[in-house]
Design a protein around this nucleic acid. Structure first.
Lengths: 228, 228
DNA sequence: CAAATATAATAGTATTACTATCATGTTATA
DNA sequence: TATAACATGATAGTAATACTATTATATTTG
């Protein structure tokens, strides 16, 4: 990513943390190392105690940044979706034509993630893997309605809505734009998961990308002839 | 469901249980009550100890049927997918024409679940809710590859493959049949979840069903004109 | 230099997810 | 009907988890 973005910060609901992890070195290391650890061992095996040991800090110090690991996961996911949203807006903003705009948007949300050098303490490629493997767990809970009210999912919802609006621009008569938008975003995560673990359940592989599949799906559903 | 099915049994990988819960009264009550409890309190809060208390049995007795609650979830999910598969095969078997067959198949896997009186100790409606809210957690684990090798997901995979084959029959040139099949099945669960908790992210509601959305999506993607 | 603040160290608690052992009840069969 | 085999129940115990609380020690700031 370009130098321009240097000063961009992803703004996250401040109820998701006790103390802003961006405000100190320790906070950044908590975020940085938690991404590695959740990737390596999975969210279930990940604990604040182990994280403390790895970063040479104390369990109790981590609790001063995040109430619990569930909120840390929500924080990481919000960061990821905020980062994606930024890329989406930046990449599509200057495209006036609705079809091309939507096409670019589908690319952004379904493409394999690349490292963004603007955020040194966050590995976006690993964060994408966390989102693929763990994001569902953040909302498949009994507390989801309260947490939704508290705004823990606003960025994700905004992203889906942006996609939905672009779908509407392409075909204002299409009656399922919200469902199609959520299908693309959630479905892309799922297709990547299947590529890794259930290859017989997906048509995607090294040659056929989820992007290609979702572009075809979208533009055919909207009855638009594309050759992409 | 009809009397014919009385003798039908859903066959589940015997590695998923220590002792077949269908083989005793206690076993059936474990399955029956676990469905209620997981629904009421969510999978995270559900424990064998609490289940034991509820059914007037002992924690240690439950462990003689299931190694742990993860395997119980896999058992319940397998049962659900096996039950759906049975309905799918039964409902589509006699339809010779490919389009109508696929249409019926989409209805089966995306419709709201109804009670099946053939299985008295299993509440299919609640089980469907469990699958919507908890199924992802059964495969979003670090052990997924080993468990896949051990055949814990065979029924689910078979179901997706059946859908995929029906898609192929409708349009042999369509190159993404497996992805579309997995998108429909997983996507339907997701749309139902969104209807309950994130209504702004779905176009489905009391009037527009997930079935309608997925039929439209599928037949337009396959370039088949339908009015359904 | 004192006060405020951040971090570390240690201890403690309730709960979870089991395992192990032994007792009791039930059923099958000789 | 006696006895073995098996199913279930009761109790205890363990290591780990997910915290909370308290106190000590750095570090920063005014």
């Amino acid at each position: 990513m370009e130098r321009l973005f240097q000063s961009v910060r992803i703004t996250i609901n401040d109820k998701l943390y006790v103390k802003d992890p961006e405000s100190s070195n320790l906070g950044k290391r908590i975020v940085e190392e938690s991404i590695f650890m959740i990737n390596d061992f999975g969210f279930e095996s990940f604990t604040f105690k182990k994280l403390g040991q790895k970063i040479g800090s104390n369990e109790s110090s981590i609790y001063r940044y995040f109430e619990n690991k569930h909120k840390l996961l929500l924080y990481l996911a919000s960061w990821y979706w905020g980062w994606l949203e930024y890329q989406l807006v930046f990449a599509t903003n200057s495209i006036p034509e609705a079809n091309s705009k939507l096409e670019r948007a589908i690319e952004i949300v379904t493409q394999a993630t690349e490292i963004d050098l603007a955020f040194t303490h966050i590995n976006e490629v690993l964060l994408n893997k966390i989102v693929i493997n763990e994001y569902s767990k953040s909302y498949l809970t009994k507390e989801v309605d309260q947490e939704n009210k508290d705004g823990y999912f606003v960025i994700y919802k905004r992203l889906v809505n942006r996609m939905s609006l672009m779908i509407n621009e392409v075909n204002p008569d299409y009656p399922y734009s919200s469902s199609l938008a959520s299908t693309i975003i959630e479905g892309a995560l799922h297709q990547y998961f299947l590529m890794d673990h259930f290859s017989s359940l997906t048509s995607c592989n090294k040659k056929i990308t989820p992007t290609e599949y979702f572009k075809h799906l979208t533009f055919n559903t909207l009855n638009i002839k594309k050759n992409g």
